[in-house]
Write a protein that binds this DNA or RNA. Sequence first.
DNA 1: GGAAATCTGCCCACGCAAAT
DNA 2: ATTTGCGTGGGCAGATTTCC
Length: 363
Amino acid sequence: MIKIFELLKDIQVTNDFIKDVINNNGYNSIILDYYKRLEEEEHIDLTNKINSIDDCNSIWTLDKYELQKIKDFKKTNLCKDKFCNNCKKVKQASRLSQFVPQLKKLEEEFDLFHVTLTVPNVEGHDYNKLIKTIKTMFKSYRKLNHYLMDIESIKDISFKKYFYVGSIRSLEVTYKNDSYHPHLHCIFAMKKGLKLSKRFKNTYSYSKKNGTRSFSSFEILIQKIWRLTNEGKKVTKKSIDDLEIGYSCSVDKIEDEHYFEVFKYMTKSNSDDEEDFMSYDNFKVLYYSLKSVRQIQGYGILYNLKEKENYEEEVDYLYNKIIDELKEKELPIEVMEAPEDLLKQNDYLIISRKKVFSYLRQL
DNA sequence: GGAAATCTGCCCACGCAAAT
DNA sequence: ATTTGCGTGGGCAGATTTCC
């Protein structure tokens, strides 16, 4: 059981982590200003929103185990705003725990593929254009899914050989100045052992980032259908054949045991480089174009996915083990109750129930 | 031109995500 | 915790294209 003890190093809530949380409250104050400005400019009521962001992380809840000298950092009150970095991370973690078990199960029967679908950048801070683009993308994806599932068909083109049974799509919008780049990261579940031989080169084969690459006929097909549907054109064998180039899309097999990495990647926050400096214009465009938009959506057998199991007991069991072990080692463990105090307590170990749980699941 | 093929739009109830 | 509303699968009707 020594192993469980060793885990504690990794699941420890470090002082750096707490500093991050506090820093983020600073970052949130910029967001807060943006919301206030938006409220004034647009004459809309955002009081609830503003209050909850203001309150984000202001109250921390802990489980206190006096005997074991552990305070379990259970949760804080969160604003759940899509621009809040803390809440973004929390959401990702919960999604991960929600989807991974189902993907894992699916992997027994199907191979999983990481699919990226892009459209041309949307230029300018006109959010109506971006809203329209995203709507079209979702509609096109539904259509693509219908084709793959054989609910709708294209004459003389069959997808049966791929045994596509469903997928998940995740919307990401990155941006640089006033150029927005919406795209979908997806996971397709298809036939186990499916070989997609990559034999074709086109203009998307050459990129600064990835060097050169070839595409499979499946990828070429997806690229073209994706372009036709997004441009509102009819999808037929002829229109596909006549189209010389589609939109940039890729389909890559997810290697064993890395599927959850892909999922992490899928849902990671937008535009890492820009994160520390989002302009008000960017904020406004993203606010309107992502409002009420579902970032993640399942299709086919992945439609209606949700967490079914209850892990509470499992966590309790693991937790007790850890606590026993700590007692045995007679380790000096203690924590404090509020962020400011936590920062002063350099030698204390704070562990998080949530973290224990998610960490152990990955082993 | 007319029939057959098949594509598109629209509707529904439902279940979950987002909002409050 | 509860309400609101988005987006699905599935199915049908009507539009559009294809083929003779």
